[in-house]
Design a protein around this nucleic acid. Structure first.
Lengths: 201, 201
DNA sequence: GTCTATACCAAGATAGAC
DNA sequence: GTCTATCTTGGTATAGAC
């Protein structure tokens, strides 16, 4: 009557975490089709059969992993420290800088972007989760910020938020994801300050 | 003394073209690791041995194909019809519309973008060829256009060109590549006109 | 629930006839 | 130069012992 049932549950989820951790490096590095269960098994330190006891197949493991990552690898993560004296141009500079620092601090964000986009044809639901969890949140946040500062005289905050985020993402794409910053060089601060000038004037 | 040697050469390159054509659908649809030589062979209507007589291995076939496509699938293709009466805002609208129409007319551009980005970690040279042939060309073109119209009072044409292209690419990424336009909806013309207002004022 | 060992199949690449 | 047939490897997934 006093059997320790919950303990088994916990062991099980510990293995699940190990598997997902091992799967992360493998899928991020090799993509979906290029990923090898053998390497995931090795990295996780479990047996192959254990993987298939926790996940029905390779595809389920992949989608579970990416959905989990969509909540953790947030390129737009930002401490909105509500310093009210802060001028909009300073705020926008901080916001953009935070995003670029997130990318610099965690290069896994780059491989995450590569796989989301690369597999978006075969796994559209994962792409859509990415857009809802990351893109939409930051677009809405920026739109609201611009709307709440009418002194900026922003004609269409939604469009302006798009231009701001779009320019930043495009910059990261060229420089970091495609590793071609040297081919179309531009200084970080020149782009950021010029972009903010375009918006705040 | 009158042997028809050139004929063989031509047959050979005909096969090469067939193989590349078959490889295109296969690589674009399934990515590098997911592509199957068997399916390329079937689509091209040649034997597997013929493929390996023309290309050393799968990787060489892939890089040859993508390099060829970087010259043909130009998302920024645009008839610069030099109508001098055309105002900058009309010109910019035409330029942006042309890009969006290129995407709409040839959905292979989308799968091409997916594979370039998705494989940019393993094939950085292909990503760099893409940036040089497509991104850089259009960035330079737009920068020059903005510079040649000083009445626009563009503070930093290079940055403005980045913002313009970046906003467009980002829009295409969300809507078409990631198939998530409905999640962060915005009307095409509202974005384009708003973006141009941001630049030309 | 987890492991070892294995079934089963499909992939990339090649040998040898023509 | 091109084909058919085949080799070899390595993949996903599972069976059966513990």
């Amino acid at each position: 009557m006093n059997k320790a049932k919950p303990v088994e549950r916990e062991l099980s989820s510990k293995k699940t975490a190990l598997i997902l951790e091992g799967a992360m490096q493998e899928f991020l590095e090799h993509g979906y089709a290029g990923a090898r269960i053998d390497r995931i098994v090795e990295a996780a330190g479990v047996s192959k059969a254990t993987v298939y006891r926790h996940f029905p197949d390779k595809e389920a493991l992949f989608t579970a992993l990416i959905q989990q990552m969509s909540c953790r690898k947030n390129i737009f993560e930002f401490q909105s420290q509500q310093s009210f004296e802060e001028s909009p141009s300073v705020f926008l500079k901080r916001y953009a800088s935070a995003m670029l620092e997130n990318v610099a601090e965690d290069p896994q964000i780059l491989t995450f972007l590569r796989i989301i986009i690369g597999e978006s044809g075969r796994f559209p639901e994962l792409a859509r989760a990415f857009v809802v969890n990351l893109e939409k949140v930051s677009l809405d946040f920026l739109t609201q910020y611009l709307t709440k500062h009418p002194q900026l005289q922003i004609a269409d905050p939604e469009v302006t938020a798009r231009a701001f985020i779009g320019t930043l993402i495009h910059f990261v794409m060229i420089r970091d994801v495609l590793q071609s910053g040297d081919l179309v060089p531009i200084e970080r601060d020149r782009l950021l300050d010029g972009l903010i000038d375009l918006i705040v004037r």
